[in-house]
């Protein structure tokens, strides 16, 4: 054979060697400086291991003795999730219309988008802590929080769906001289209703998950029960609560998945 090539190297992902080694160096520097500057208390970490042993020792077996508290907390979470889902799904309809480019005038469109972006940017726990300060401890703050959370998700997807609708029926209705509201009811709603119900069921599931969490900062439900158990070092009760939360999430995930499969 003519050539006797006996070397071959895989071409690197970044062809420019300066850029490549620069990137490696930057990553190395980042890792070193981050670990050096993060306020990590190594002694405390080492102590943590024995503490972990104590906590897990205290958590087993899980205690269901105060099951009344547990059931109350769980039912409250369920109510929060249901009411927030209904409120959120209903409220997200007008907001979605405001945020749909093909329906709303530009100024209203920007307003609608802004509402959605703000609702999406904040983790529900942050929203919850603000509502707790504004309207006091308890499930009402939780409901408001999850309404905001639902709007961020449902209104966004619904607005996208509205933007994708077939414009034909809308034009036909306008041509027939129908007023704005009738146009919505007859030409737009039929095209988005199914999606909205599916989103609602999905949102009920995610609200149930989230309602367990917002309680930790005082917005009612089983999260509050859990935070209290942790605060009082009742680790066996905390484990029981966690097990109930996990079980409920798994069941609700399965149920909501099954329902959505049926209506889709």
């Amino acid at each position: 054979m003519s050539t006797a090539r006996d070397t071959w190297r895989k071409q690197p992902f970044i062809a420019n060697p300066v850029l490549r080694y620069g990137l490696y160096a930057a990553i190395a520097v980042y890792i070193v400086t981050t670990f050096a500057t993060l306020p990590i208390d190594w002694d405390r970490m080492v102590q943590g291991l024995s503490r972990a042993g104590r906590i897990f020792g205290g958590a087993f077996p899980p205690s269901f003795q105060r099951s009344e508290l547990l059931i109350d907390g769980f039912m409250e979470s369920l109510k929060i999730a249901i009411l927030a889902t209904v409120g959120g799904v209903l409220l997200s309809i007008p907001i979605a219309f405001m945020a749909a480019r093909n329906i709303a005038p530009l100024s209203i469109y920007y307003f609608g988008r802004a509402v959605i972006i703000i609702a999406r940017s904040f983790h529900p726990v942050i929203v919850a802590i603000i509502f707790v300060k504004a309207v006091g401890f308890g499930p009402f703050a939780g409901i408001l929080t999850l309404i905001v959370y639902s709007i961020g998700f449902v209104a966004k997807l619904l607005a996208e769906k509205i933007e994708e609708i077939d414009p034909g029926p809308v034009e036909a209705m306008r041509a027939a001289g129908a007023p704005f509201l009738s146009t919505l009811v007859y030409a737009v709603f039929p095209q988005i209703m199914q999606r909205q119900i599916g989103l609602g069921i999905y949102q009920l599931d995610s609200n149930l998950r989230a309602s367990a969490v917002v309680g930790i900062v005082g917005a009612g439900g089983i999260g509050a029960t859990l935070a209290n158990a942790f605060g009082r070092y009742d680790y066996d009760f905390a484990l029981a609560i966690t097990m109930v939360i996990v079980g409920a999430i798994l069941i609700s995930e399965a149920v909501s998945g099954a329902i959505r499969k049926r209506i889709a």
Partner: peptide, 10 residues
């Protein structure tokens, strides 16, 4: 590598 190039050339 040499054998690979030979065969690929073939």
């Amino acid at each position: 590598i040499r054998r690979a190039y030979e065969l690929m050339e073939r």
